[in-house]
Design a protein around this nucleic acid. Structure first.
Length: 845
RNA sequence: GCCCGGAUGGCGAAACUGGCAGACGCACGGGACUUAAAAUCCCGGGUCCGUAACAGGACGUGACGGUUCGAUUCCGUCUCCGGGCACCA
């Protein structure tokens, strides 16, 4: 120990020198890479704790520090509780920022990315996070992304990866396509002021919709996920049950067909349909306008206005417009012809892109009908016990708790019954059927970018679209590619990459030049940690069977939809391939709050960023970690206040000085536990407080994750020590007890300090693998308790009774209290309530 | 518009199952130590009324109402703040 090497000066002894002590331990820990190494072990209980892997932007921010401090505390706590812990870290290292940096600094994306990784790894190590670096995953390296390509081939074989020409979301600033999930209120998720344009491109899609039902259903099993996340995913998947109904156009339209199929969830209101509305992009509309230039002009104007409104930043519901096509379609239930319109509020990519319009019973249809003077026909009425006085409801009337009128043979049915009977009728007669639609769409993964996983497909003039052979993986992303944001993949300009031979016929062919969405990388990375160096397969299934599902995943709520729904999809696909056995990847999810300062999220544009490096340099890693755990419970937003971290530093010094005042020579056997009978009252109070503190910290750690109250409890214990010390000498055995236990309790949250304290107690064993302390209920028990006494619910006195006092004894003591007496004199006692160990309330009149 | 959170001292927060509101920490005030400061150690702080000082009293967890012997906690209505979704038929 340094104290032995060189006599410390008095001044130095006073202060906890975080820099020196943390340096010392960091060196020791790094000299032993096996310290945090995990090994699958069939008989040991496992615990897989994972924090969301960062994008290597160049430096950690406080959100990372908070996220990783929580995960690290948990990992260390579980180690101390005897679990075989897997706690890995990696880098989500493909993506656009590397290309932007390349353009700005003229550095290749790979070089920039790897340098950032090195820098951030140093930061993480300086912060003392206990990761098993032997399992590090870097998604931009071929030994990882080759398995993205391999999975893509498997998806293609299974018919779950397909190519289609489609309108896609295009961000002009990113110069690439965005997934639906990356469009936020019509704007690019990376450029909040950039409206997303629609472009027609050939794109690769993954058929996530195949799993839509299961993704929804299995949310039920994720009871340990925040309800908020489950609801967000549920809404995103957006399942609705409804009916398809064919409206006959009378054979007057071209190749797109002569019936319009509408989707409705309220077929019970179909006798109230007074028009059919088509999306402007509907194929039947295309047919119609091909032969009607007048209509064409009107529809084009409709579309143009729509686009203008969107680009002007209008989000949500914009004003409804429509155009009458001059045609009629027949309602198959009553044979009535209704006018066919084209309307801007009909979405082409939901349902069938066509609806029946029931103005009396749908808000949007009502608004539209009022504007264009369409007929409004009431076909359901509220249910009432008193049929005589039934009043017409306010329109639009959309309740389900109603019954049918003006609906022919279906009159009198309740809405729910009518939906069943009427959709069955459609199927029976062949003009429709019950159906289920989803809001979620297939996942478009093509990106016209350089810094991503090449899609392993080849285009041959003779054989068409041909997958690269598995043995030829990985398709290596070439270096030294000139990067522009001009549009189109930069790989198109690399002949050595572009030109290849057809895997089928051997003739000349061209490679796919698009790369994969980076969310592919993060959809399965946590499986790779279980078997990070496998070069025969993405992983060994036996290892997955041991480690999965992830016991605890921790990250920001911003990934509630994208990353977490893609990951679930990927797992289900791998399960169906037979690679894994689990249906879900993540058993428990925790979403921590944001780090804010001065009322706003920390960001460069707000200028309120606090640098972790600066905090570590000024206060040390432990202080930064402890503060991020202390300032708020982990699920809430944390308001960063520099003065708060001063207080933490002061607390650490207070703990440290207690150990300095009570030195122990190394090599001594641990003292036997203190005997409570022989202790002075003040020492007994300290002993009780110690055991109560162990209980509180254990409870708050395990069950609630309230690290803030864990730390507060330890602070109270330290305050008690100082009080006891000033009151007289404390027996050495009790001091030894306290000293050991404080080091153990601090170990998950402040590892540097805890290790130093552990060494100062004369312990030589590995703190990380030392058992978490247990409290003794007998030693934690109070001898006497203070019971508040209320009169009519108002506090009037306090009585001190033995902890063993009966309710009667407590009541007698309460009635004997002078203040209580004064409050009840001359009044009649109506009731006496004694809550054991809690309170007495006397009700008087 | 719909869905989910949240609101407690000057500030961050605590009160876990309805039972002493404000633990713990920050900031602040006072004292000790010091030539002085820093550091450290000790003490005090919800608001208002009241007292020379004690005492004592009233009010107090966004607002209003309800249930209860008793409500920060449960119920209803509303306000404000944060987040998600955005015409999904």
């Amino acid at each position: 120990m340094p104290q032995e090497d060189q006599p410390v000066t008095a001044a130095r002894e006073e202060r906890y020198d975080a820099q020196r002590i943390e340096q010392k331990w960091a060196e020791r820990w790094q000299s032993d890479p096996s310290l945090y190494a995990a090994e699958a072990h069939p008989t040991k209980p496992k615990y897989y704790v994972l924090e969301m892997l960062p994008y290597p932007s160049g430096a950690l921010h406080m959100g990372h520090v908070r996220n990783y401090s929580i995960g690290d505390a948990l990992a260390r706590y579980m180690w101390m509780n005897g679990y075989n812990v897997l706690h890995p870290m990696g880098w989500d290292s493909f993506g656009l920022p590397a290309e932007n940096a390349a353009i700005k600094n003229n550095t290749p994306p790979k070089q920039w990315t790897l340098a950032n990784i090195a820098a951030m790894k140093l930061q993480m190590n300086r912060l003392g996070f206990a990761y098993d670096w032997s399992r590090e995953v870097t998604t931009c390296l071929p030994d990882y992304y080759r398995w993205n390509q391999w999975f893509f081939l498997k998806l293609y074989e299974a018919g779950l990866a397909y190519r289609k020409k489609s309108k896609v979301n295009w961000c002009p600033q990113c110069a690439t396509v965005l997934a639906n999930e990356q469009v936020v209120a019509g704007m690019c998720w990376r450029h909040e002021d950039q409206p997303v344009e629609q472009r027609e491109l050939e794109q690769w899609f993954l058929r996530i919709t195949k799993y839509a039902d299961e993704l929804l259903r299995d949310l039920e099993s994720l009871q340990e996920w925040p309800e908020k996340v489950r609801i967000m995913q549920q809404n995103w998947i957006g399942r609705s049950e409804g009916t398809l109904v064919d409206f006959d156009l009378g054979g007057t339209v071209g190749p797109a067909g002569s019936t319009i199929t509408v989707f409705t969830t309220r077929v019970d209101t179909i006798y109230g349909a007074t028009s059919v509305q088509l999306a402007p992009e509907h194929p039947i509309v295309c047919d119609m306008i091909a032969r009607d230039t007048d209509l064409r002009a009107k529809v084009e104007q409709l579309v143009a206005e729509q686009r203008k409104a969107k680009e002007a930043g209008d989000i949500g519901a914009i004003e409804k417009h429509g155009v009458f096509t001059g045609r009629y379609a027949k309602n198959p239930y009553n044979g009535e012809p209704v006018p066919v319109w084209v309307a801007n509020y009909i979405l082409i990519d939901y349902g069938t892109g066509a609806i029946m319009s029931v103005p009396a019973h749908d808000e949007r249809d009502y608004e539209f009908a009022m504007k264009y003077n369409l007929e409004i026909r009431l076909v359901i009425l509220p249910q009432s016990n008193d049929d005589e006085t039934m009043a017409e409801p306010a329109l639009p009337f959309t309740a389900m708790n109603a019954f049918l009128v003006n609906s022919g043979e279906f009159n009198g049915l309740t809405c729910a019954d009518a939906i069943k009977k009427m959709s069955a009728r459609a199927a029976e007669k062949g003009f429709g059927k019950p159906t289920v639609t989803f809001r979620i769409k297939d996942w478009g993964i093509s990106r016209q970018r350089y810094w991503g996983t090449p899609i392993p497909m080849v285009y041959c003039e003779k054989d068409g679209v041909v997958p690269v052979a598995e043995k030829d993986l990985p398709v290596i992303l070439p270096d030294n590619v000139p990067i522009t944001l001009a549009g189109g993949s930069p790989l198109m300009n690399v002949p050595q990459f572009l030109n290849t031979t057809c895997p089928k016929c051997g003739g000349p062919a061209r490679r796919e030049t698009d790369t994969m969405d980076t969310f592919v990388d993060s959809s399965w990375y946590f499986y790779r940690y279980a078997d990070a160096h496998n070069d025969k397969a993405p992983f060994d299934s036996a290892k997955i069977a041991y480690w999965f599902p992830i016991d605890q995943y921790i990250g920001g709520v911003e990934h509630a939809i994208l990353h977490l729904i893609y990951s679930r999809f990927w797992t289900k696909f791998m399960r169906d391939m037979g690679l894994v056995k689990n249906d879900e990847p993540i058993a428990r999810l925790f979403t921590q709050g944001m780090v804010i300062k001065n009322g706003a999220k920390m960001s460069k544009s707000m200028g309120n960023v606090v640098s972790p490096d600066e905090m570590v340099a000024r206060y040390g890693a432990d202080a930064a970690r402890l503060y991020s755990l202390f300032a708020a419970p982990p699920d809430r937003d944390l308001d960063w206040q520099e003065s708060g971290i001063d207080g933490i530093q002061r607390f650490m010094g207070r703990v440290y000085r207690f150990y300095l005042r009570n030195p122990v020579e190394t090599g001594l056997a641990p003292s036997p536990p203190a005997q409570s009978q022989t202790l002075s009252p003040k020492a007994r109070d300290l002993q009780r407080k110690l055991h109560q503190t162990i209980k509180r910290v254990s409870d708050d750690f395990q069950g609630r994750w309230h690290f803030n109250t864990c730390i507060a409890a330890i602070m109270e214990l330290v305050n008690e020590i100082y009080g006891a010390e000033s009151a007289g000498k404390i027996p050495a055995s009790l001091i030894a007890d306290v000293r050991r236990n404080i080091a153990l309790m601090l170990a998950p949250m402040a590892p540097y300090l805890a290790h130093e304290l552990w060494e100062m107690t004369g312990e030589t064993g590995n703190l990380l693998k030392s058992p978490w302390p247990k409290y003794d209920p007998a030693l934690a028990a109070e001898d006497e308790i203070e019971i508040p006494v209320q009169v009519n619910g108002k506090l009037r006195g306090l009585v001190v009774v033995p902890a063993s006092a009966t309710n009667d004894q407590v009541e007698q003591a309460a009635l004997a209290d002078e203040k209580v007496k004064a409050a009840i004199t001359g009044k009649q006692i109506v009731k006496k309530i004694v809550v054991p160990n809690k309170l007495v309330n006397i009700v008087v009149r």
